[in-house]
């Protein structure tokens, strides 16, 4: 038989979490920064993908300064004048996100593509940051 001690504070903490998640879902949808990104270390390069559906390719501004990548742009409302909004859940407005790169990158070789609302940025690592195999003799 196991004896469990009822800890009222633990339940309080659970309630606290539940209430917090309620608020998070309603207003900011749990997103601290926009856009949501994924960063993959592929050995020779770093690949960043960002979800920016509905953003025009020409309105995305990508800059790399030292080891920081900045993704900036604007997500516009689908219609502004003469319409009545019944529901408005999609985020809109200007955004700017700074991402610290884990490695030095070769600034000349950065490439980016945009498809189906997903921005993919490939940043080849600088020579000195590439992994190297050392042979033991």
């Amino acid at each position: 038989m196991r004896l469990t001690v009822w800890d009222p504070f633990r339940e309080m903490a659970a309630l606290h979490r539940a209430v917090n998640s309620l608020f998070r879902d309603s207003s900011t949808r749990g997103r601290v920064s926009y856009p949501p990104v994924e960063l993959m270390d592929k050995g020779d390069s770093v690949v960043i993908t960002a979800e920016i559906p509905g953003v025009n390719k020409d309105e995305v501004d990508l800059t790399v300064l030292k080891d920081t990548l900045t993704i900036a742009g604007e997500k516009r409302l689908p219609a502004e004048e003469g319409v009545t909004y019944i529901r408005h859940e999609r985020p809109h407005g200007r955004f700017r996100r700074l991402i610290d790169l884990p490695y030095s990158v070769d600034q000349e070789k950065i490439s980016a593509s945009y498809k189906d609302g997903i921005l993919t940025i490939t940043l080849p690592k600088a020579e000195e940051a590439k992994p190297r195999q050392i042979t033991v003799e």
Partner: peptide, 12 residues
């Protein structure tokens, strides 16, 4: 997430 709006002729 969705936006829904109404014009004279349509619901978008």
């Amino acid at each position: 997430p969705v936006d829904i709006y109404e014009t004279d002729n349509d619901v978008i």
